[in-house]
């Protein structure tokens, strides 16, 4: 084992291609496939590279099938890549060395790892034994997790009797008992209600802050990513479209800002002057009653706002970035050609 690596995770030109059997429907096709099986190659990850520094929390964004889960599975050692180099904590993940496995965890929102039929606390105890957690530390950690996640009532129940949210809280707690240095979280909040999502999210934030654990997270919920990750990786069709901070993502892919202006109802009529004041008729999205909504190029935002404030009787003004989900849609629409984002972080 090498010493402490400078990067917690290094990925170079990672590729993973699945070979899947393929046949058309129907009896004849089924008979033909007995003799000769046709297969098709499906590239899930098509050559991505990135580094993650110790303690960094990185969000993976991408539509279904983008290659997020495949990448996490390679990083955690479940999958052999087709090609490329990966190290995590100085280990090659898929060799699944004990020293590596003891320092990491993979939490999948759609899979459970706790034994279905036995009380949660028994599963915890099994993890204590497997990860060789000293008894005193184990008690202390369980106590802390029970308080933070409010597990008291759940510990004695078999997992199958828990609700989805309760189960997820227990999954998260059980996966962190051994204090992993690297966390791979694949949709940890999927299917949970908003309150439970927030609770899990807050807890993960708390854990990473306290332990300095390196974390890679995928989620369909932007709220998770916004709350936890300063840096995001956007992948689409197995390729990395963007690697940088969340704010930069918005600047890069959404060249517009939205300005909403509420006029004083008692003020003079403005109908004739609006277009001249705004600067371009294309920028005016709507004008209804006393409210103007504009979509203005980023570079013009300040000038336009100043002009409007100086010439109109304004009651209120809001300048905002477009919703992050819209930006993400834009990124996916743009595709790899437009977004060879090798931004210096």
């Amino acid at each position: 084992m090498s010493g402490t690596p400078e990067q917690a995770i290094q990925v170079r030109e990672l590729r993973k291609t699945y070979v899947v059997p393929e046949r058309e429907g129907g009896l004849a096709a089924a008979a033909r496939s007995l003799v000769r099986r046709r297969t098709r190659e499906v590239p899930a990850v098509a050559g991505i590279s990135f580094d993650v520094a110790p303690g960094e929390i990185v969000g993976f964004l991408g539509p279904n099938g983008a290659g997020k889960t495949t990448t996490l599975k390679v990083l955690s050692g479940l999958l052999h890549p087709t090609s490329g180099e990966v190290t995590a904590l100085g280990h090659v993940p898929w060799q699944r060395e004990t020293a590596f496995l003891r320092r990491m965890t993979l939490i999948m929102g759609q899979r459970n790892q706790l034994a279905w039929d036995i009380p949660v606390v028994d599963s915890f105890d099994l993890n204590r034994a497997i990860y060789q957690i000293p008894a005193a530390e184990y008690r202390e950690r369980v106590k802390e997790l029970v308080e933070l996640l409010e597990l008291e009532e759940l510990l004695r129940k078999p997992v199958r009797n828990l609700s989805l949210g309760e189960r997820m809280k227990c999954e998260v707690a059980g996966s962190l008992l051994h204090r992993p240095d690297v966390l791979f979280l694949d949709e940890p909040t999927i299917g949970l209600d908003v309150t439970m999502q927030r609770r899990i999210r807050n807890f993960i934030a708390h854990y990473t802050e306290r332990t300095g654990a390196t974390t890679l997270l995928t989620s369909h919920y932007m709220a998770d990513v916004e709350a936890l990750c300063r840096r995001v990786l956007v992948i689409h069709h197995g390729q990395l479209l963007y690697d940088g901070d969340l704010a930069g993502l918005v600047t890069r892919f959404s060249p517009h800002k939205t300005i909403v202006i509420d006029l004083e109802p008692s003020g003079p009529a403005v109908d004739g002057r609006i277009e001249a004041l705004v600067g371009s008729p294309d920028w005016l999205v709507s004008h209804a009653e006393d409210r103007l909504t504009l979509r203005v190029p980023r570079s013009e935002t300040a000038a336009v706002t100043t002009r409007l404030l100086a010439n109109l009787q304004v009651a209120d003004v809001i300048v905002e970035e477009p919703p992050i989900d819209e930006v993400i849609d834009l990124v996916f629409a743009a595709g790899p050609a437009d977004a060879q984002a090798k931004d210096a972080r």
């Binding site: 004990t98 039929d117 036995i118 028994d122 599963s123 099994l126 034994a129 060789q132």
Partner: peptide, 24 residues
């Protein structure tokens, strides 16, 4: 694996399994 750890794992598994069998 250290034998002591293995014994510990087996004991933990034993307790859990006993509970399971009684449940069913």
């Amino acid at each position: 694996l250290p034998l002591r750890q293995l014994v510990d794992v087996y004991r933990a598994k034993f307790r859990a399994e006993i509970a399971l069998q009684f449940a069913y």
